[in-house]
Design a binder for these strands. Structure first.
Length: 111
DNA sequence: TCAGTGACTGACC
DNA sequence: GGGTCAGCCACTG
């Protein structure tokens, strides 16, 4: 893969997340070879609004918790977006997270 | 320049 | 098995 910015790689991975699926900060960080820099993934999401086209609502923490929902314009926008894609959310947590989890390491795993 | 903070995670007790 | 600690890197005051 080309030597793109760390953020660009994060965005690239998030954009590849299929509709109705979710992934985690850790999975993305691991895919980028920075498993211990998962916070940077979260930071990238914080900046994703400036880039646009990044379904940040499909990115949750490893527990399937919508930890970043408060960073969305609407209080429940993140949850609404997930519901709109067929992802069930309850108590700020993705239901059947294990089933909906989309691992870039397994789905992409190339380059 | 230094110190604090954050949309996280894994290890340790 | 649940709470605590440290590591990671970038940004802000």
């Amino acid at each position: 893969m080309a030597e793109k910015d760390f953020f660009e790689r994060v965005y690239g991975v998030v954009r590849q997340v299929p509709e109705g699926r979710v992934t985690t900060y850790g999975a993305i960080a691991r895919y980028l070879g920075a498993a211990r820099s998962s916070r940077m993934v979260g930071w990238a999401m914080n900046n994703s609004h400036a880039v646009g086209g990044v379904p940040a609502h499909r990115v949750v923490n490893r527990k399937g918790l919508l930890t970043g929902k408060h960073h969305f314009p609407g209080t429940d926008l993140m949850e609404q977006l997930l519901w709109n894609e067929g992802v069930e959310v309850e108590d700020d947590q993705v239901i059947h997270f294990d089933r909906l989890f989309w691992d870039p390491n397994k789905e992409i795993k190339q380059e």
